[in-house]
Structures are given as structure tokens and as C-alpha cells.
């Protein structure tokens, strides 16, 4: 079994369902500095513990970087 999840365009596999919170920890990302979109919907930071990533989900995880115009 396991889950296939696309994160930032790359496919990743997980053994069991994971919360967004746990997923970010696994990826080594600090929740305070990023934003997460799941299947084109924003996941509010307050719901990272409650939202579970499902098989086939498409996630985008973004941050602020240097950029002008």
C-alpha cells in the first residue's frame, strides 16, 4: 500500500497517511516560513495538525525568496 503524493512537482511515497505537520517535519521545513497548498486549496497554518495528506494529493510548498519584478 502506501501513498503517492506529488510535492512541488516531484512524486514522493509515504508508508502511512501523514498530517501536513508531520510531513513538513519529515521534509525539514519550518512551518513559520512557508505556505502550503493542497489540490489548489490553501491549507491554513492552524490546520497543519488536522489535515491529513491523501493518496494522489498534489501539494505545493512555497516560501519567500529574493525577487524583483
Amino acid at each position: 500500500m502506501g501513498l503517492r503524493v506529488t510535492i512541488n512537482g516531484e512524486e514522493r511515497r509515504f508508508e502511512a497517511p501523514v498530517s501536513v505537520d508531520a510531513l513538513l517535519a519529515q521534509l525539514g521545513l519550518e512551518p513559520a516560513k512557508i505556505a502550503v497548498e493542497r489540490n489548489l486549496e490553501i491549507v491554513p497554518r492552524s490546520q497543519y495538525r488536522d489535515v491529513t495528506v491523501a493518496d494522489g494529493d498534489r501539494l505545493e510548498i512555497v516560501q519567500f525568496i529574493g525577487g524583483g519584478m
Binding site: I7, N8, I34, A35, V62, Q63, G68
Partner: peptide, 19 residues
Amino acid sequence: VTVAVRRVNLTDPGQPKLV
């Protein structure tokens, strides 16, 4: 300052950050 929004680098999450 103007800033851009981009995907985090999953292979190297420890890269320097603007913030």
C-alpha cells in the same frame, strides 16, 4: 522590499533564506 514566492527546495531545505 519586493519579494518573490517560489517552491521550497526539497532536496536542500537548509539553503540560505531571505528572511
